[in-house]
């Protein structure tokens, strides 16, 4: 018992959640298709023929122009499902109490659950980003700097979404109204993430990459802040959950 640390507890919970996902394939078979469908719906909402004039005779389709924001809206909506799933598996048979009774550190439980959500969201993010390029015909003059900025943005934004989302899901854990309460709590909190990630991705795809990095910094600060809040508050949140 003595060699157990927060990190090893976190790893245990993370492996448990990913193992459940491997067995049930809920994220792969339900959340990812939902995310793709969201992109298709955006395509219906924004006319494929509408174009933005960029000057000097150049133009870009509105779909491609707004793709950076749409990518993260799709990820956010999928995150709500992934979070609901993450705590749905704990609500049956009092497994959350079981985790506590097993002597796991609450901070470890938080990091493990947030980590598992992060891994799932990253895979959703890769699919959504590729899908957006495909559906919205986004044309980018790729450079290494652009690719690095885009990947970092994805990582920092999903980390923030996973950390904040896990806290609010724990807050509503074990409630009948959980499924409606979590989106109400999480979406306004994640508005700044959406804003920052949209701006950073826009800089990565179309603008100057130097404009994107401050936003990535802000996203990283957000993720760290919520990671810290989760570590210190999960003990109180899990009590009598």
């Amino acid at each position: 018992m003595s060699d157990r640390t927060v990190i090893s507890d976190a790893r245990l919970v993370l492996r448990k959640d990913l193992r459940i996902e491997r067995a049930s394939k809920v994220v792969i078979s339900q959340v990812v298709p939902f995310a793709i469908m969201t992109l298709v719906l955006f395509g219906f909402g924004i006319s494929p023929d509408a174009r933005v004039v960029l000057g000097e005779g150049a133009s870009r389709s509105v779909q491609a122009q707004v793709a950076p924001g749409l990518i993260f809206i799709a990820i956010l909506l999928s995150a709500l499902l992934a979070l609901s799933r993450s705590f749905g598996v704990e609500s049956a048979d009092g497994t959350l109490d079981g985790l506590r009774l097993a002597g796991l550190d609450p901070a470890g439980i938080f990091l493990g659950k947030a980590g598992a959500v992060l891994v799932q969201l990253l895979s959703v993010g890769v699919v959504v980003t590729s899908g957006a390029f495909l559906f919205f015909s986004v044309q980018v003059d790729w450079t290494i700097a652009r690719a690095v900025l885009l990947v970092t943005t994805l990582g920092a934004a999903t980390a923030g979404i996973a950390a904040a989302g896990t806290i609010y899901s724990a807050l509503a854990a074990g409630l009948r109204v959980r499924d409606t309460l979590v989106p109400l709590l999480v979406v306004p909190v994640l508005a700044p993430v959406l804003l920052g990630a949209g701006q950073a991705a826009d800089a990565a795809l179309f603008g100057a990459t130097v404009d994107g990095w401050p936003w990535v910094g802000a996203l990283a600060v957000f993720a760290l802040l919520y990671g810290w809040v989760g570590i210190i508050s999960f003990d109180s949140l899990l009590e009598d959950a």
Binding site: L171, A172, L175, R176, V177, L181, L184, L185, P188
Partner: peptide
């Protein structure tokens, strides 16, 4: 509004 919803939790 979310905070008030939490205050109404059962």
């Amino acid at each position: 509004l979310g905070y008030l919803a939490v205050r109404k939790m059962d």
